[in-house]
Write a protein that binds this DNA or RNA. Structure first.
Lengths: 193, 193
DNA sequence: GGTAACCTAACAAGCGTTTGTTTCTACAGG
DNA sequence: CCTGTAGAAACAAACGCTTGTTAGGTTACC
């Protein structure tokens, strides 16, 4: 046992950061959970902020790579959006708290790293806006404010880590379906779906 | 000038808590902003946590009193929901950061105070669920998962403090209208509105 | 016997808070 | 018109404690 200590440290940090927050988690908290001394962590990690960075960086990548191929595909915009929602929910449900950290703890990164996160976040949001805009142009969606519509869709997504519980009654798939239902019905030109 | 120092302290704490977070804001930060010494604050406040509590407590009250009379009224559920969204947006837009603190910093309160917040939060969410449920029963809204629908409506509301900027292009009224449009269209039984 | 993992101990800095004292202002009595 | 006094507000300094991090020594295994 105790094979890859580094992975254990990151896993512990992940769950603590996501439920108490980065600032409220001390290096000694993480060490205690692993039955070791605070200083001993530094044989495996570079700094506390670096641990946060790697978690946030990884999450940003997960979201982008989950969505990009869908946007570049050639389905209808309705189907693209449905698939994007499903992909997003899948990432939140499947990464053990990475998503919550990505959304709420990035402010504690250094300036340069914060910018890197902001860049990818804008890119992500842009994908949603683009699909909605194209759906309006094609007549699939009602004529509306696409910037605001994308913001609302992302709001629903972004709040999910706050209440999602892997042991809850609904599977990730079911949650994604409920999301898509209200979102698509709200956006579509006609209620024919 | 410098009439009510206590109010100044709370105002400064409010804006600092809402943009950097409670833990990331030190008592010395607040003092420096007001050109005074950290210790001097304690002539006006009881503790740092007490400042947070008063802000959160106030925000919780604002949200509840803005919404309760609407729920108890006798309009249609569609109109109730529209009014609730408008009222909520009004509170977020008009209280200079209280809302963001209420939503994100309550975890740093003591156990007892955290419970008091949770109680009122549940009450608030219950109002939304109730209006949606009654709207389904009355046939105004499509048959759907009311718990999940309420959660989605609240997600849109709760994320608002993260992006809302008083100097932005849209007025609070316009934001509320955009919200209601997508939400009601997504919920309604027929697209006849 | 070398190497990795860990511990003990300490560090400098920062935290929220308390203390004792000073400064300023307002107002009463003589 | 002075003077004395009370109160509030702020200051400087320190309190005990926690923070992230580092250094050096000890153990266990190939």
């Amino acid at each position: 046992m105790a094979i890859d200590r580094k992975a254990q440290i990151f896993s512990t940090a992940r769950s603590m950061f996501s439920e108490r927050g980065y600032q409220a988690t001390t290096v000694r908290d993480i060490a205690r959970e692993l039955n070791m001394q605070a200083g001993s962590l530094y044989a495996h990690i570079e700094s506390k902020e670096d641990v946060l960075w790697q978690i946030v960086d990884q999450a940003a990548g997960q979201f982008l790579t989950a969505i990009e191929p869908i946007v570049e595909g050639d389905r209808s915009n309705v189907e693209k959006l449905r698939a994007m929602v499903r992909a997003h929910v899948g990432v939140v449900a499947g990464n053990g708290g990475n998503a919550a950290i990505f959304l709420h703890e990035w402010k504690f990164l250094s300036e340069a790293r914060r910018e890197s996160v902001a860049f990818r976040r804008n890119r992500y949001e842009g994908f949603y806006r683009r699909v909605i805009e194209e759906g309006i142009t094609s007549g699939e969606f009602a004529h509306a404010d696409p910037k605001m519509a994308a913001l609302m869709v992302l709001s629903i997504m972004n709040w999910m880590p706050q209440w999602y519980n892997p042991g809850g009654p609904l599977s990730a798939q079911e949650i994604a379906d409920r999301f898509s239902e209200l979102i698509l019905r709200g956006l579509m030109a006609e209620t024919g779906f």
